[in-house]
């Protein structure tokens, strides 16, 4: 999915000289200084951005095609699915399609180094030291053993601005979008938000 690069909106880069030239192109005396115009323009842009964020809903930015696993999927299979699909997290569904948890790379790392604050590098360090790897811990377990639960899910009508707040407050990178019964409709990730914050839609 080659989305456009997220970055500063190009419209922000209006120079004083641009404004002066534009004023020259408009016939008639404009009763405003270039500086006042710039202030007005930047404030208007801010309002426009806030309006876009406030009005854009989860359903418009989410991915509807979601890689999922079930409660009883063995961890070996979960890891394989995440690796081949190139995702860093998957929702865990029960038989009715209701989201019961989420498994992310962090959950694997946590299990491989129980009792310690885990990161990829701390696992590497552990593997290289005498204690050795603890991948064997993962054998025989299923998705429901290591998933994070309960899940912070969002509704399709939640605004992008609200979701960004949730991500920041909870330090999470993705949230499943669910219906009234808790059934999975899609997923919103940080990169979905970034893409829409940059003012461009899906490519």
């Amino acid at each position: 999915m080659p989305g456009p690069a997220a970055g500063n909106a190009p419209g922000l880069e209006v120079s004083d000289d641009d404004i002066y030239q534009a004023m020259r192109e408009i016939k008639g005396y404009l009763d405003i200084t270039p500086g006042d115009f710039k202030e007005l323009y930047l404030k208007a842009l801010e309002h426009a951005q806030r309006r876009m964020l406030g009005s854009r809903k989860a359903r418009e930015v989410m991915s509807a095609k979601v890689v999922t696993v079930s409660l009883s999927t063995p961890l070996r299979e979960v890891a394989e699915i995440m690796a081949t699909q190139g995702v860093s997290g998957v929702p865990v569904l029960d038989g009715e399609g209701v989201v019961r948890g989420v498994i992310s790379e962090k959950d694997f790392l946590g299990l491989m180094q129980e009792g310690r604050k885990s990161s990829f590098m701390s696992v590497v360090a552990g593997c290289l030291s005498a204690s050795g790897c603890l991948v064997s811990q993962l054998l025989g377990k299923t998705a429901c053993d290591i998933m994070s639960s309960p899940v912070r899910s969002v509704r399709p009508d939640d605004s992008v601005a609200r979701i960004a707040e949730i991500f920041t407050a909870r330090g999470i990178n993705r949230a499943p979008v669910v219906d009234e019964q808790g059934r999975l409709l899609g997923i919103v990730t940080r990169s979905d938000l970034l893409r829409h914050q940059a003012g461009s839609g899906r490519a």
Partner: peptide, 14 residues
């Protein structure tokens, strides 16, 4: 004063 005087209008306008 931090601002800039607006440009002069064209001859036609005058």
């Amino acid at each position: 004063g931090a601002g800039q005087s607006p440009p002069r209008v064209g001859l036609e306008e005058i």
